[in-house]
Design a protein around this nucleic acid. Structure first.
Lengths: 220, 220
DNA sequence: AAAAAAATTTAGACTAACCTAAAAATATAT
DNA sequence: ATATATTTTTAGGTTAGTCTAAATTTTTTT
């Protein structure tokens, strides 16, 4: 049978929280992320376990099964493809698309997803630099660095963000940092780890540790 | 406050069933169209009346209020714009888009609808020839004829369909009848009212009364 | 105009997804 | 290792939208 909007959201969030290594996710963490109470999460976990979508033992946390991961990745694929559509075709800003994609990601129809993918030219990354799983559900995480791991003097390419909050993305817009920008760390302040960064070899600006922590980059 | 998916569907269906003159819609008709039971409809009508979206007096049938009509037309606008998107941009057939648009029509965000409209070039009609309400909610029904009202010898333009069933649309595809085709009635069979129709001045085919009844056309 | 039929509403129940409060299990601190 | 704190689960309840069966109202027929 079909999975509900809510079930899909739980699976997506479990996927996000269990990270690359597939660690167990706690009930409280899920309550936080779903904006519900722990008791509600417990109810849903029993249900998802019965459907064979998660591994769940009382008090032991939760992990996706193969079937659950398949659903989660399909939702992520749809979310990211719709984000590309909203930005590339409809002209939304990268800070405006998350909420709308949260709705669109639950529209069923494999045909729709595959045609959308083709219409968009089979994009590999969404507007925030997150990789788009392919139709078979292969999601290969590019191994980006966080800007805090880059040394003074190094030049890196801006490839993505960890924080997707509109306020953060708007801050990057105002700073002139976009996907593909070349960033060169010219100085790191010992005291607060803030940095001076030259962007595309031209203007230099200060960025706080808070910002550095949320920028994904790649050595060239 | 917001209207639910289900509430929007009731309003859309009341709109469709009450026709141009805004006649009262019966509980049973709504039960039929929503694929629920009359008792469920009654519950929903009480709720919609409380929200000021319908005029409802027990046993008297139901009519949209101004507010209700606004919601219904907004849903119709979204449905038809998404259908244009699916056909024009994603290459779906006109027989394949109804179900998907039934889902997409409930995605909220005025910004999304207006950008989609612009992206599509402000289309006036959907792939079935139905008029698309404008952003202000103006829905002007073009006064099309039904093919049964056309006489032998007349040439008309095929402008739309009344039946949206995939099987009917596929039948038209196989017959080579598309929006914009020029139809000339060359003969009407007295016995069963079936007709011979020349399409675009070339090939002629027989169409049954059942088909004629569902073709919307315009004199030129 | 009374009886019969049809349509509609009410009454009472169910499921999904949520809640609060209390109980139980696990983890942490002394 | 016991006491305390935290996390998680259970118990019991709520709302939206649905259901069936019974009661009521309206319509149709005789």
């Amino acid at each position: 049978m079909q999975n509900s909007f809510t079930e899909e959201n739980y699976l997506k969030i479990i996927h996000a929280l269990s990270g690359r290594e597939g660690v167990e996710v706690s009930t409280n963490a899920l309550a936080e992320s779903t904006a519900t109470r722990a008791a509600s999460v417990t109810d849903m976990l029993r249900k998802l376990a019965e459907k064979g979508l998660i591994h769940y033992k009382k008090y032991q946390g939760v992990r996706l099964t193969g079937a659950g991961e398949k659903v989660a990745i399909s939702v992520i694929r749809k979310h990211r493809l719709w984000e590309v559509f909203l930005v590339e075709k409809l002209g939304f800003g990268w800070d405006e698309v998350h909420e709308i994609a949260e709705e669109l990601e639950h529209i069923p129809s494999d045909e729709l997803v595959e045609r959308l993918d083709a219409f968009l030219g089979h994009p590999r990354f969404d507007p925030h630099g997150d990789p788009i799983p392919d139709a078979k559900g292969n999601l290969t995480d590019p191994d980006y660095l966080i800007l805090t791991d880059v040394n003074v003097g190094e030049k890196v390419l801006m490839m993505g963000v960890l924080d997707h909050a509109p306020s953060f993305l708007q801050h990057l817009d105002r700073s002139g940092i976009t996907l593909g920008s070349v960033l060169e760390i010219t100085e790191i302040n010992e005291y607060d780890k803030s940095a001076s960064v030259r962007i595309n070899g031209t203007n230099t600006l200060f960025i706080s540790l808070e910002v550095s922590k949320n920028l994904l980059v790649q050595r060239r």
